[in-house]
């Protein structure tokens, strides 16, 4: 008989080992199997561990799952789980580095936009679970925009993203329940995105590159004047304050006290 820490250590090693790994002989001696052999009994627990984690990834990355199909997703998920075992008792955070993993996953290299779709789904989740904050009313936003030295805070749930692919359109057609037959035409190339959840629902909004540059500057803590300059550097003709005000209409900002 082994001590409880020893038993749980070898049990854990077995659970996290690649499928098909032989059971530690000492562990199998200490486990009692009647009709069903010990190895098969232990395998039930191992299957459960992988099933939970694969299920969590599938829930978090539904568009990636649909794009590559279940078998490939399962294969990629198993590889990811082996490389990045869970370290948190809650599954909410599990898989945050899956987009980065897919970026370096040779077997998925024929789908070049896959890591960006995963990144969008990860930001969507972050926004979904982000802390609550009261959105800044448009009138107050207008006052701040007219004061170059002011700070304008993005909402606690706001996330920014850029992609050289039409990633939000690819994502949209893959999370819609409607079945799509055959080829679909997706317009456009690069995208600049704002993902935000001012109320209950997460919104994925396509924005211009200059608006994106201004919001990114605000996110870094720049003043309103610096943010407007960052935006007009990209597109001198744009009426940025008007664009930002229309975002304020969509509850994109929150007051500084929320931070």
């Amino acid at each position: 008989m082994r001590s409880l820490p020893d038993l749980q250590r070898s049990f854990t090693e077995f659970l996290l080992s690649p499928p098909g790994t032989r059971v530690d002989p000492v562990l199998s001696v200490e486990v009692r199997g009647q009709r069903v052999p010990v190895e098969k009994r232990l395998a039930i627990y191992k299957n459960n561990v992988y099933a939970q984690l694969i299920g969590a990834l599938r829930d978090s990355y539904p568009a990636v799952h649909r794009l590559v199909g279940h078998d490939f997703f399962r294969f990629a998920a198993m590889e990811y789980i082996r490389a990045h075992p869970s370290r948190s008792p809650t599954l909410l955070e599990y898989g945050a580095s899956f987009p980065e993993f897919l970026g370096g996953f040779e077997a998925a290299s024929s789908v070049p936009y896959l890591p960006d779709v995963a990144r969008l789904e990860q930001l969507y989740l972050e926004s979904y679970h982000a802390p609550e904050a009261a959105p800044l009313p448009k009138a107050e936003c207008a006052v701040l925009l007219s004061d170059g030295s002011a700070q304008l805070r993005l909402h606690t749930s706001a996330r920014l993203m850029t992609s050289s692919f039409p990633v939000s359109r690819i994502w949209e057609v893959n999370v819609r329940p409607a079945v799509i037959d055959g080829r679909i035409q997706i317009p456009g190339g690069a995208e600049y995105l704002l993902i935000v959840r001012p109320h209950t629902t997460v919104e994925v909004r396509r924005i211009s590159s200059s608006t994106h540059a201004a919001l990114a500057a605000l996110e870094r803590g720049c003043s309103v004047a610096e943010a407007l300059a960052a935006g007009t550097d990209i597109d001198p003709g744009i009426d940025l304050p008007m664009h930002l005000l229309s975002l304020a209409d969509g509850d994109t900002f929150c007051s500084c006290e929320n931070q």
Binding site: R9, T12, L16, V49, Q52, S86, P89
Partner: peptide, 8 residues
């Protein structure tokens, strides 16, 4: 166990 969460 030892920082690894097994979710079972």
């Amino acid at each position: 166990h030892d920082g690894y969460a097994l979710h079972d």
